[in-house]
Amino acid sequence: MNAAAPLLKTPLHALHLELGARMVPFAGYDMPVQYPHGLMAEHLHTRAAAGLFDVSHMGQLRLEGPDAAAALESLLPQDVIGLGLHRQRYGLLLDEAGGILDDLMFVNRGEDLFLIVNGACKAADIAWIVQHIGTRCRITPMPEQALLALQGPKAAEALARLLPGVGQLVFMTGSPFTWQGHALYITRSGYTGEDGFEISLPGEAAEAFARALLAQPEVGPIGLGARNSLRLEAGLCLYGNDIDTTTTPAQAALNWAIQKVRRHGGARAGGFPGAARVLDELDDPASLPRKRVALVGLERVPVREHTELQDTAGQHIGTVTSGLLSPCLNQPIALAYVDLAHAEAGTTVQAIVRGKKVPMQVAAAPFVPHRYHRG
């Protein structure tokens, strides 16, 4: 019997241990779930000041060549060709049935398209991309690159001390920077709902750069636990929980992520995997078998993923995909899929927690307002 593959380590692994992190396996890596102050303190610190996250387990790759944008657009329902220089966009990698293989971010850097994909999906994503468009552009994985996220209302202030000029970026734009002779690429983006930045840099520079950030009075280290609670308060999907190959963009309430030019009637409509189903569902929302919704608890009982949802008559209507007690709101929040008849805001549903019915209400997302810096 083969032993399990040893866990991979990010370039910040020794620093996490030095900082007293509790480490857990995640996407094949040994990753920090929390530091000694604990999840709640880390979450609130990020909302109030600035949190530093190691997200080096995620996949980074670049696509090069004159046909790269058109090639990538053949795999995504997003507008790639029309993306401006140093602009970033959220994308969905779809299979032939319109199911979501992964969600990702991509940036037009001029000389290439720079992609960031989820850590647990990166090997499969790269294989899928190479299989489908490998003859149309050069595809280069970037395992030598680390990735850090600095998030929170004081992130720009802290980062500008190391990189003057970074404050000129606005949400979903990027730019190259140099720090101590190392080439960095920084986007003003993140997955917490706060203002913040994602920083791609050489692995050998990551620890020194992280230490320089942690030396700023606003910045504290943040683990995977708070990363999850922050993104859930922001109403953002986690791949593998809230979206996967069984969910389509319309079912996942990600209609906003598909630009008009790629929809029926648009100049470059369709032409991506699963396009017929995806576009039909966008055109006819009433045809959806289920839909992702946000839920708030009416009692202070946490409701976790995989919890069954019933209507007031006791009939099964759906399942929770992410859920916890919101640190900022001090009430249970969740994302869930429910049948269309129960997806309307204000609808009361029952979560079945250890055999007991816990009332929840369909609400508007995000649970905590986004504070992106749009200029």
Rank of each mutant, 00 (worst) to 15 (best):
A4P: 05
A21G: 13
A48P: 01
A49H: 09
L63R: 02
E64K: 00
L75T: 03
L83N: 00
A97C: 12
D102L: 00
V107A: 07
F114C: 01
G119K: 04
A120R: 08
A123N: 09
I133C: 01
G134D: 12
G134I: 15
L147K: 08
K154V: 00
A156R: 00
L163C: 00
G165R: 02
Q168K: 14
P176I: 15
T178V: 03
Q180S: 07
G181H: 09
G193T: 15
E198W: 03
S200W: 03
A212L: 02
L214I: 00
G220C: 06
G220R: 04
R227E: 05
G235W: 02
D244M: 05
A250Q: 03
Q251Y: 12
I258S: 05
R262P: 01
R263Q: 13
A267E: 06
R277K: 15
D283T: 12
D284M: 14
L288E: 04
K291S: 11
V296N: 12
H306E: 13
H306P: 06
L309Y: 01
T312D: 14
T312W: 12
T321C: 04
L324N: 09
L329P: 08
N330G: 08
L335K: 06
Q350G: 10
R354K: 14
V358M: 11
Q361S: 04
Q361H: 04
A364D: 08
P369K: 14
